[in-house]
Design a protein around this nucleic acid. Structure first.
Lengths: 356, 356
DNA sequence: ACGCTAACCGAAACCGGTTTCGGTGCACAA
DNA sequence: TTGTGCACCGAAACCGGTTTCGGTTAGCGT
């Protein structure tokens, strides 16, 4: 049908009115007679008029757009949660007809440059940051700029900004408790570099869980590796080579847990039987791993929605510190958590074929 | 440090020049003396000046922004490719400092409304559409609007627009060939509803592969189900219940293939031994399925980059039909393709534990 | 009949840039 | 010395909207 977008000017001309009048009519100002208002409305959607958002937003001084900085973590399978998070963000923003801009950087410094650019060029009214580091220069920069932002995750100094996070510490206490309940006592932790705040939180949760249950925290049972499936595999191999290997492993993420499973299987052992594994993230794919991965699940789309709502509220003037939400993760039992495998040398492998 | 963005006006005042002069100085016009140009440049990045992009783009009449419509496919694990695609798109756009806007709709009609809105409100200069339907109203609409767009995938009437696609037909011929080479002849197809063009393409590839190898296409061996892991599982169960069940299955996607694996294991059979399975997508997670999934791999980030470049070229004036790229998928052998399992009643299950 | 007020719309300014068009001042040639 | 031309910058118009401010007109009371 029609192709070129119709501007306010041609709409006004078409109606024999001036541009400002038409504008106010469409925006429901009181000083426009109900008659003309109706007339304008009708003509507007007859001609398929849509206000040019660039112009409108320039005028009202609000880009009505939120930027999301893609987490930048090597080539790993670290992004499965991004699609769901974006979906949730989009839903929240869509309710007010705001837009979602995604931006990804190539390096840490490039990331700061991106923030500089996005904030100062008036393209976004706020930013969403994922996976903060322990001392994150991005947050520092945004605070210096006094620019609205929310963090998906939180850091140590989390009092003065807005965040939504899943309580990783609590989740790992839960994981450890669960494993202890199954009879385990040599429980290991497979983690990612501690520069990520979440890695730190979850490690603390692990340690607290151990202490709470009267277990000693053996440094050998804490293995940090690259944040990827390969990293998880490598770390687990080190653990299994220990003189006294663990009978259960909690992993900082599902991706790393998948690597752990591979390492365990690689030795002819069966995850969930000889060595229990609990991941973290609740990836749907976990249903199809070998065997299906027990994990701490969490609603990513919900996170996106909340982050969007929080950010818009802050842009509207709310104090950031008013918006801090801690979500609890849920233990999702699948097949990799099992009772402590005592006796019987680990070389003895059950012949039962696992069935999903 | 500084917080409020500095406008051209204050920069000009600071320099004792007028706004247009400063603008032209920064944009390298010839009618500005080298001296002042340098002076302006220096002052600009001293004050941290960044042009307001909303204003700039309004003025130059180009939003310099590309919209991506999130594929809207139930709750399935269908989106793992999105993150990579977005990454690729972002890279391509970033080279020219364009922005990436993501938009997702809640229903098919909502999707059309979104397109209407995005195009007519001047927010984007072009759109990227994923997973076209066989007779896609979105493409129809965009063509009517004469609005620049590229399609990730293609439809039957694909001559008059731009697209990037992986040759699904060819890929499935390859899959079938490979399986025939392994001795299989009863090869089944697990597909998703044929409204998706890709589902159609791949089915045709399957059929062609069968014919090419002198095999008959048995309608019973073609099972269409919901596009999800559960759908794949259900379809596979139907296949395995056949009087003469298949010895190999090609699946329209990795997600559905994961369901197929579950169904096969559910009967005490071993994928890759008793029943071979080949997926499509090349998801990295396939490395961790049970057993690791053989699949037809493809570079999603590359797709994103190409789509971005193509779209910008079209917006610059290129004829869309000039930009049509067909990529070939690569057979990625993991563990679910194996030689035809003859003899021995399928009830007889090997006791060997699979090792990754 | 007059004034006052309220209803309604147009004029003008602005948001922050870009781009075209003129005009000044200087160097240069005649 | 006087034109001529060029280098350089400012004035003005524009992109497509929003919002404040004035000015008519009509309706009302008196």
């Amino acid at each position: 049908m029609s192709n070129k977008p119709v501007s306010l000017k041609v709409l006004a001309a078409h109606l024999g009115l001036t541009v400002p009048t038409v504008s106010r009519a469409l925006n429901g100002y009181a000083d426009i007679s109900p008659a003309t208002r109706e007339r304008v409305r009708r003509a507007a959607d007859e001609l398929g008029y849509r206000p040019n958002q660039n112009a409108r937003r320039l005028s009202i001084g609000n880009p009505e757009t939120v930027g999301y900085l893609m987490p930048r973590i090597g080539q790993s399978i670290a992004q499965p949660f991004v699609a769901q998070l974006l979906q949730g963000l989009g839903e929240a923003l869509g309710k007010r007809h705001w837009d979602l801009l995604v931006s990804h950087a190539e390096s840490a410094s490039d990331e700061l440059a991106q923030i500089e650019k996005l904030t100062r060029s008036g393209r976004v009214s706020g930013l969403v940051i994922s996976r903060p580091l322990r001392n994150d220069p991005r947050l520092q920069l945004l605070q210096d700029l006094k620019f609205p932002f929310v963090v998906h995750g939180r850091t140590g100094s989390s009092t003065d900004y807005a965040w939504y996070d899943v309580d990783g510490e609590d989740a790992f206490v839960t994981s450890v408790n669960h494993l202890v309940g199954l009879g385990h006592s040599r429980i290991a932790f497979v983690g990612s570099p501690l520069q990520f705040q979440f890695a730190q939180d979850r490690l603390i949760g692990y340690e607290r869980g151990m202490v709470v249950n009267g277990l000693t925290v053996d440094k050998d049972l804490i293995q940090i590796a690259e944040f990827s499936d390969d990293g998880g595999e490598a770390a687990t191999n080190i653990l299994l080579d220990l003189p006294q290997p663990p009978t259960a492993i909690v992993c900082v993420s599902d991706t790393m847990a998948l690597g752990a499973l591979a390492a365990i299987r690689g030795r002819g052992l069966r995850p969930g039987v000889h060595v229990s594994v609990i991941g973290y993230d609740g990836l749907q794919f976990g249903n199809h791993s070998n065997p299906p991965l027990t994990t701490m699940a969490q609603p990513q789309a919900h996170a996106g929605r909340r982050l969007g709502d929080m950010l818009m509220a802050i842009i509207d003037g709310d104090k950031p510190s008013k918006h801090q939400e801690l979500q609890r993760a849920q233990l999702l039992r699948r097949m990799t958590d099992g009772p402590m495998h005592t006796a019987a040398d680990q070389k003895l492998v059950s012949t039962r074929e696992e069935t999903t």
